[in-house]
Design a binder for these strands. Structure first.
Lengths: 152, 152
DNA sequence: AATAATATAGATATATTTGTCCTTGATATA
DNA sequence: TATATCAAGGACAAATATATCTATATTATT
């Protein structure tokens, strides 16, 4: 559904939000290992998400790394999609028509219009803080188990 | 959501099913113009869908072209996704984890599992015949109006 | 049999995505 | 102030997706 860039970004943001804080920043090495993504490529993606410190914050130097401010944790994962210009994956016509709408519908429009809001809702109705909180007492994962096994 | 290849394929199959028959085959020129897609590229994609005449049938030579047999019209659009190996767009983990499952869920799993079956259903609960029939008396489109305007 | 119209197939070109590497800049700490 | 540790940024490389072009095979019609 999403590009690899976006998949990495979503996983990274959740990981950073869960384990990072201004007092405990997370290095790109740790992030890439945790979410099983190519390090340098992930670094590039995170750069887009740190622009203007809207979502992710970063600090260089020793004990530097990435974290989310408490304010940033009020954002939703939809913010990630927007910053990467990938929200169109959800919002655009499934048949790729540029002007698909209620008055000029594609053959799938009447059906997809019932699903689209659910996808939007899925990424926008919970703050990152809530999402991470939900995860605290579950066995949820962000890593490919198959990769973990290789590393062991 | 889908690749351009898949978007073109879905639009093409619907168009061919609506206007084509063994007695009235549709040329690639007409298809590409109707669905607003690059001709040669679309031809390549249709080749994949004509393998073994599973979905689209084709005949070379004068008055040749593409059509769907009555049997093929019993298929669903899910068949297009399968033939192009794009059903994973719907079925795979939204965060890109290879082993995301009920027992090893990603943070979005519990939410996406409610939507995934609806997406599958959307592409598999109606035959292409039914879909085309639904379209007969509606103002549904398969073309980018903006492109139409350019051509006029 | 010749011709024209069609899809098929292969080669190539272009654009985009994904990925790596190396240098630079920033900063905490010794 | 020197050094080590971190992200930022730029250049490049590889893989994949998208697109075009040309030649070939098939077939209906003349």
């Amino acid at each position: 559904m999403f590009s690899k860039s976006t998949e990495y970004a979503l996983r990274a943001v959740i990981f950073i939000a869960k384990w990072g804080s201004p007092q405990n920043k997370i290095s790109i090495d740790r992030i890439a290992q945790a979410i099983d993504s190519p390090k340098s490529f992930t670094a590039k993606i995170l750069q887009k998400l740190t622009r203007d410190n809207v979502l992710i914050s970063s600090i260089t130097g020793p004990n530097g790394g990435f974290y989310l401010s408490e304010e940033a944790k009020d954002s939703t994962l939809m913010k990630v999609l927007e910053l990467l210009d990938e929200d169109h994956v959800i919002t655009k016509c499934v048949l790729g028509l540029q002007e698909c709408s209620e008055s000029n519908p594609c053959p799938m429009h009447s059906r997809y219009k019932l699903i689209k809001p659910q996808l939007t809702h899925m990424f926008s109705n919970k703050t990152i803080r809530d999402l991470v909180h939900d995860l605290e007492d579950t066995n949820v994962t962000l890593t490919n188990a198959i990769t973990l096994r290789k590393k062991i």
